[in-house]
Amino acid sequence: MLKGKDIVAINDLSQDEIERILNKAREMVPIARAEKKSRLLEGRILASFFFEPSTRTRLSFETAMQRLGGSVITVTGQEGTSIIKGETLADTVRMAECFSDIIVLRHPREGAARLAAGFSNIPVINGGDGAGQHPTQTLLDLFTIKEEFNDISKLHVTIAGDLKYGRTTHSLSVALSRMGASLSFVAPPTIQMPDHILDEISGMGADHELSSDLMGCIPKTDVLYMTRIQKERFPDFEEYIKVAGAFRLDLDMLENAKKGMIVMHPLPRVDEVHPDIDPTEHARYFQQAFNGVPVRMALLSLILEGDI
């Protein structure tokens, strides 16, 4: 049962719970598109605490709440909050629970959502903690893949770009491994998948390889998941310059791709996916961004109202 549950890491969810969320998300699509109306969460308040820049995640959570008739209180950035005065996160979440029914938290420090969940008496959803976990991105990624291919265990997924600092790739890799997909991690060695994630994946016995050859991986790939090289995650600017732009996907590179292969990207992109790919049958990144709304609607409704 998901009612009242904190969602900090994808591993907090059982396989059944993930399936339940994805099925619920499918039911939510017409409401997300405003083809149907819902007052399911009327009178409920979401505290949206984003202490780090975000557009998609914040807006889709807020849209999800409002599409279900709920309302939102928002804090963005640390300015204007008591954090700047030195308030601890532990105190901030205990304050937030006085005003709301559920908290979504994005924070620049890893482990922040786990800490917040420990102090809060209302459910906490992790909206991304530093270079750590981003479970709702993973859920919408899984939803996007499942809408395309029903059986994830038969898929080969290539995840490319910034695998060291890109938190979306960490949660996704763990979830896909659990579901039996085989994986290629394609990145320059300095920003390859961290050991603790590889360790976790190996522990599940998942078939995976490390590579720096994007072209070579494309023919066997069913899902190509591209990510941005994130400048803000590099402690050293020179290292960023060195690796930035090393992984750019253009139309020519898709010549040997399988017919049904899809290209995903958590967005925003810079130049790692060429706009020429946008009109092709492969592009799914805008659909993926939309899917954030029904998936978060499913999550909010299941956590606040239970399995209805």
Binding site: T88, A90, R109, E110, L115
Partner: peptide, 10 residues
């Protein structure tokens, strides 16, 4: 960058 290395009461 772990939250426990900040000034939190844990």
């Amino acid at each position: 960058n772990c939250i426990t290395n900040q000034n939190e009461p844990v």
